[in-house]
Design a protein around this nucleic acid. Structure first.
Length: 368
RNA sequence: GGGCAGGUGGCAGAGCGGUCAAUUGCACCAGACUGUAAAUCUGGCCUCUUCGGAGUUCGGGGGUUCGAAUCCCUCCCUGCCCA
């Protein structure tokens, strides 16, 4: 078995589980930092591990383009290539079908792209997406899906669901690597009937794990929060559930409450590079002048390397001076904060006080 | 002492008769960031404003003109070159 999953505690719909992969086991709910181009931007594997990261992401589209999936295969696979020996999940490139919309056309055969690097034409088919991910050797691969914008017309949404199902089937048929699990992705936007239809089809194909895609793609956060519980409930109880691309701390807790096990998001690292830090007391914009003389740590009580060694004034200075250590230190803290939040959520679920924990967090963040 | 070149918003630096409250960059201030085309992007940055505008600005003073940052006179100041 390339992957096992076991639910160990429940608190309402929220659950604590253990996900075991060929590169190690991780407790869930878990947040996965995003390392699109075989690097979680600005952080070394050691720093990631120290921040609490146990499983990270890589990207099919980016790595196939550069340096090439065959090259990575020949060099021993993605784990060895990037020096990360823990579990890796690779995204299929489905999100690039969405985010590179300007230079792409979609047919049932696949998505034709224009490389964002040099403009070269290339095509990502379900089969090719699987092949790339098998070459990368990730522990968890994702099916190629079509991820329409949140404000898409109902017909476009239905078409995306139809194609996502079609592609999932082809991915599954093409997938042969025994030490890799292939997860399916449910689309359908905030239309619950469409979600249900998509989930039913995919569940019938019996994947080892399921993701909810197509969230945080333009719809309101409130609409996403409202749809999550029902969407998560459409997925098999005993298999891992992954909410793709989400999100802010409050979105993560909404997902956990709905019964989601895995999350990924660029937010902690991208925001970290842009001087926005997440803390138990809400976001801190380190470029703001009010931190110029503040010797206090970014977050008091935080055990991360950044908070243990530096004050806000120093971090402010690093960003003002455009020093590369600033993005690194704040990314490090943000990743540590996200992972601590997940650890606290797991503890709260074990003690069956998750709802109170979530309410307390929202209170301190100042979220309405 | 003589010659030349200049003095524009925090800084650098455009503009050289009206469309100029004045291009642009930097600095500064604030905001955004959700399966990474992002160490990125957006907005603000003379004063007041009921956000429609209004009032004062381009070294100082005087003048020409319907109209001047832009032309003339004069004074002050800076840089370079020659004595």
């Amino acid at each position: 078995m390339p992957l096992t999953f076991e639910v160990r505690h429940r608190d309402g719909a929220a659950r604590v589980g253990l996900l075991a992969t060929p590169h190690g086991a991780v407790e869930t709910p878990m947040f996965m930092p995003v390392g699109t181009q075989a690097t979680v931007k600005g952080l070394t594997p050691d720093q990631l591990r120290a921040a609490g990261a146990r499983i990270i992401l890589g990207n099919t589209y980016h790595l196939a383009l550069r340096p090439g999936d065959e090259l990575i295969r020949d060099l021993g696979g993605l784990h060895r290539f990037m020096g990360w020996d823990g579990p890796i999940l690779t995204d299929s490139g489905g999100f690039q079908v969405f985010s590179l919309a300007e230079q792409r056309t979609i047919t049932d055969h696949g998505a034709k792209f224009r490389s964002h690097i040099d403009g070269a034409r290339l095509e990502l088919t379900p089969e090719r997406a699987v092949e790339i991910q098998q070459n990368l050797g990730s522990d968890i691969a994702m099916v190629l899906d079509e991820c329409p914008p949140g404000d898409s017309a109902p017909e476009a949404m239905r078409e995306a669901v139809r194609r996502t199902i079609l592609w999932a089937e082809r991915c599954k048929r093409h997938h042969t690597r025994a030490d890799q699990a292939l997860f399916a992705i449910v689309q359908g936007g905030t239309d619950l009937a469409l979600r249900a239809e998509c989930a039913a089809e995919l569940v019938a194909m019996d994947f080892p794990g399921y993701a909810l895609g197509g969230f945080s793609v333009g719809e309101s956060p409130a609409a996403m929060h409202a749809a999550l519980p029902e969407c998560a409930a459409l997925l098999p109880e005993g298999k891992p559930r992954y909410l793709m691309g989400v999100g802010r701390p409050e979105d993560l807790l909404a997902g956990v409450a709905a019964g989601i096990d895995l999350f990924d998001c660029v937010m902690p690292t991208r925001s970290g590079r842009n001087a926005l830090a997440f803390t138990a007391d809400g976001p801190v914009r380190l470029r703001n002048a009010k931190h110029r003389r503040d010797a206090a740590p970014l977050e008091s009580g935080c055990a991360c390397y950044t908070c243990a060694h530096f004050g806000r004034a120093y971090l402010h200075h690093l960003f003002a001076a455009d020093e590369m250590l600033g993005p690194t230190l704040v990314s490090l803290h943000n990743v540590a904060y996200y992972l601590r939040l997940m650890a606290e959520a797991r503890a709260a679920i074990r003690e069956e006080r998750f709802a109170a924990f979530r309410a307390g967090c929202r209170d301190r963040w100042g979220v309405a």
